[in-house]
């Protein structure tokens, strides 16, 4: 029948040994401490997401590579035959691809954070885990995806004989800021999304609008000047500059784009983190 088992060893010490409800730090601080304590959860969950993504689809990794390329091809055909943009010094496919990748990352990761947060409600109401771990794992998952999609981007650059400059090395930094921004926005929308199902639908519509409010498929010069100024308030515009300019202009994006992207991203993260963690009790008291 049952094999005699060896006694289980003592639980490995996770740093916090005594939990005293009267001596808890501010929720925003506590969540951060717990997230660090549970970083293995973030690692495991990211690995799980990546593994599942490639297990489910037949083409696997290939799909991640093909998807943006197919979209790029369609848009290039449409825009070079239907609309006629002023002739640029760089090929149109390379103009749109970095933006498509950025938008795809932002769109998917923020939507998925909402999904994961809602899905983890039941779990997190039974076992203590820092809920932000799932959101962070989601962003990491799509960041890895984005990094893989850089391979075809570089391949196209080579094919189209676009110069590969050292400025490309700043692209990962731009991607990092985009991840910070996505995490902040995701946490913000997720907090509302937990309570109301129409939040997700509204956000989805907003995302579509956001796509067109970002000069991904059109050059910003074609919009009227006063609207151009208004577009400067769009964080994605600055993030886009960081990941696109090294590709099409072979130079690092201007400092003002870096500063704006930095400011917007961390402001979004601070706001999202604050709202998400201080409403924690409301999460609990809901289920």
């Amino acid at each position: 029948m049952s094999i005699p088992s060896t006694p289980a060893p003592n639980q490995p010490a996770l740093r916090q040994q005594v939990y005293d409800s009267s001596r808890r730090p501010h929720p925003a601080v506590e969540e951060l401490q717990e997230l660090l304590r549970f970083w293995h959860l973030v690692v495991q969950w990211s690995r799980r997401n990546i593994k599942l993504r490639y297990k489910r689809s037949i083409l696997g990794v290939l799909w991640t590579l093909l998807e943006p390329l197919m979209l790029m091809t369609i848009l290039t055909v449409v825009f070079s035959t239907v609309f006629r943009f002023p002739k640029q010094a760089f090929p149109f496919p390379l103009y749109i691809l970095p933006g498509l990748l950025l938008y795809d990352f932002f769109n998917r990761s923020t939507m998925q954070i909402v999904e994961e947060t809602v899905a983890s409600l039941g779990l997190a109401s039974r076992i203590y885990v820092p809920r932000s771990a799932f959101a962070l794992a989601t962003v990491i998952t799509y960041l890895v995806n984005w990094a893989i999609a850089l391979i075809p981007l570089i391949a196209i650059m080579l094919v189209l004989r676009q110069p590969l400059s050292w400025s490309l090395l700043t692209v990962p930094l731009g991607m990092f800021l985009a991840a910070v921004f996505a995490l902040g926005v995701g946490l913000l929308v997720a907090t509302l999304g937990v309570f109301f199902h129409d939040v997700k639908l509204t956000y989805q519509v907003l995302l579509t609008g956001w796509f067109y409010a970002t000069p991904i498929i059109y050059p910003v010069e074609i919009v009227p000047e006063n609207i151009q100024k208004a577009l400067l308030l769009n964080p994605l515009l600055h993030l886009l500059a960081l990941v696109r300019q090294p590709v099409i202009l072979a130079r690092v994006a201007p400092l003002e784009n870096w500063l704006a992207a930095l400011g917007f991203s961390f402001a979004a993260l601070a706001a999202g983190w604050w709202v998400f963690t201080t409403r924690r009790n409301v999460f609990d008291y809901r289920s």
Binding site: A13, I127, Y128, D284
Partner: peptide, 24 residues
């Protein structure tokens, strides 16, 4: 839930010493 710190009590004090394993 109060003991496993999933839920913060409205008032009162919880002290839990050591590692908790919830078989929940």
């Amino acid at each position: 839930k109060v003991i496993s710190r999933v839920l913060t009590p409205t008032s009162g004090r919880v002290v839990v010493r050591g590692q908790v394993a919830p078989l929940l």
